[in-house]
Design a protein around this nucleic acid. Structure first.
Lengths: 246, 246
DNA sequence: TCTGATAATTGGTAATACCAATTTAAGATG
DNA sequence: CATCTTAAATTGGTATTACCAATTATCAGA
């Protein structure tokens, strides 16, 4: 006979399912503890224990006097330790690029094999959005649109675990932006080939050519890596010249 | 003026520090809730909330009537959401294999480029351990030794982010063992080529041939994937036959 | 209409009681 | 003396109640 699960675990699971199924959306506020405990017919401490569990997992966010909310970025449990690592070791972002090279090559390959018409429309939309963001504002916005374009391709691969991992990696990169990544979007000699590569990648996926898609994704990542190395070197040289003047 | 942290967070942090500093060792038992709450001069519900947080993070393990223990294996924070996913969708383990295909190909490539003498000795040791475990006991032990062999190659790639991701994926697989994975070690027609592939992978890394290492890693993963598919089909056929008898 | 004060709501902490599961200790039996 | 069974003690789990602290909403006055 199976042991009965503790009530707090059952509540945590139910809430997790509601978040996973979209019944509870990022940013949405839960009912007040007393009301929710009453509705679920459990005691408030049991509910609190469940909520604390999910706070700890990064799924919920509770503000004293202000209510409990579904967190906006749900990958925190994966990201936090890596974020600490990136803080300590800025070179780790090249580690991330190496991983992206491997994973996005695969993502593009499987996307070319598996994408549905809906996926393809989504990829096109994200590409247009990304192009539309160029030059008109915050490079952060461009960076976000870029990430969303790439994630649309990962979605089209229909590998849920890969999507989870890639979401975590992109969240990580967005959080650690500060290492000249914006230069990718503001330097014309970089942005133009970057944009062409994005287009080539999209076209390969839309044509359903897996090997071409893989190569396009990997060439793109190699270009990003080399561009960042170069931008780093130029920034280093600029610092050297400033020292000479002072 | 900084907001004062909630008491349960302070307790959770203190306990985490004690674990990190070795004051509390894996497997060790905490004092009883009432005693610990009294010692810390907090209420028992506050302490319980802290303990539930750490249970949720995989740092502690609480047994009703039996006490609270420091957990033995500590990578759970990455694993839990994916574990839930794997429970819901057993096919996700093939998603994981697709990712391993991409990541371990890269890991082997960079390991062949970057491994030090220490790395190479470690890889050899893990290989010998894995071979030594074959057939003499629990297939779980073999599975663990297999994971450690692969992780030794990831370590030799000197990509810290990749190591973090791969550790998480292996912990995930170990936790979700139940889908005929042990058959990989107990079926001679599977184990023999598997073992040869492991050897070939190791040799390519030791020779410092990156492309050969990548191909060896990827061939190995393809073989694992196909073997699991086949084992699944046979299990399905066996179930069909049992139905016929009953 | 805007601002400040007050009331209401919400989360945080504590104390207490009791139930359920596990562990330990004591007693009986061979 | 060793082993088994039973009872007691210990431990975690749940619930109720009370009160404090922070935030939000509402109301009154300028």
């Amino acid at each position: 006979m199976m042991k009965q699960k503790r009530i707090s675990d059952q509540i945590a699971e139910a809430l997790t399912a509601m978040i996973a199924q979209g019944e509870l959306k990022p940013g949405e506020r839960l009912p007040a503890e007393r009301a929710l405990a009453s509705r679920l017919e459990v005691s408030r401490p049991s509910l609190r224990e469940a909520i604390q569990k999910l706070n700890s997992k990064g799924l919920l966010d509770t503000r004293r006097g202000g209510g409990t909310y579904v967190r906006e970025g749900i990958e925190a449990s994966f990201v936090d330790p890596l974020l600490a690592l990136l803080k300590e070791l800025p070179e780790s972002r090249f580690d991330v690029l190496e991983i992206r090279h491997a994973l996005e090559g695969s993502a593009a390959y499987y996307a070319a094999l598996r994408s549905t018409d809906v996926d393809k429309e989504n990829i096109k939309r994200k590409f247009e959005t990304m192009i539309g963001k160029h030059g008109i504002g915050d490079p952060m916005d461009e960076s976000r649109a870029d990430a969303e374009f790439h994630l649309s391709i990962v979605e089209a691969s229909h590998n849920l675990v890969l999507l989870h991992v890639m979401r975590g990696l992109f969240t990580l990169l967005m959080s650690s932006i500060s290492h000249n990544l914006e230069k990718l979007y503001t330097l014309p000699r970089v942005f133009q080939p970057l944009s062409n590569q994005h287009r080539r990648l999209m076209e390969a996926v839309l044509e359903g050519d897996p090997e071409k898609a893989r190569r396009a994704a990997q060439a793109h990542l190699v270009f990003v890596e080399e561009s960042l190395h170069q931008i780093d070197r130029e920034a280093e040289n600029n610092r050297g010249q400033l020292r000479g003047i002072k």
